[in-house]
Computed example of a mutant assay.
Amino acid sequence: MSRQREYLADATGAMTTRHPEALARALEKLKYYGRPVTRTNTSMSHLWISDPNKPGFLQRLFATHPPLDDRIARLRANADRF
């Protein structure tokens, strides 16, 4: 359900700005230049909502955001509708 809301947020942003390609390019920049936290000091792990030192299957299973490639593809596929 949360992933569907992300797709809906993308569509709403595209309709609001009327520039779905610009939103797709912004997502591409996040994909290429955004760096997720790969490792932190274990003494700081308690400050994170989910421990970045323990990535795994469950983290991917419960991810709230769909893959950026899927979001970009949907924006570009529906660009003429916005």
Rank of each mutant, 00 (worst) to 15 (best):
N78T: 15
M15G: 05
D70N: 13
I49G: 04
R76L: 15
I72E: 01
A14T: 04
Q59D: 15
Y7I: 00
S45G: 03
A63I: 01
L61K: 15
L8T: 04
R25N: 13
L68A: 10
S50D: 13
L58S: 06
R74P: 01
A22G: 08
D80W: 06
R81E: 06
R25K: 14
Y33W: 03
M15K: 10
R76G: 06
T16H: 00
D80L: 07
M1D: 04
P20I: 05
A73I: 11
T42W: 13
M15H: 04
A77F: 10
R18D: 13
A9T: 05
M1I: 04
T38F: 12
P36S: 05
H46I: 07
L68S: 05
E6R: 03
R35E: 08
L23I: 08
P55I: 14
F57L: 14
G13Y: 09
N41R: 14
I72H: 07
T42S: 15
D80G: 03
E6P: 00
S43I: 09
L27S: 01
T40N: 11
Y7R: 11
N53H: 03
A79S: 12
D51I: 06
Q59L: 12
M44N: 12
Q4T: 10
A9F: 07
G13T: 07
L68M: 13
L27A: 09
Q4W: 02
A9S: 04
P67D: 15
W48Q: 03
A9D: 04
T17D: 08
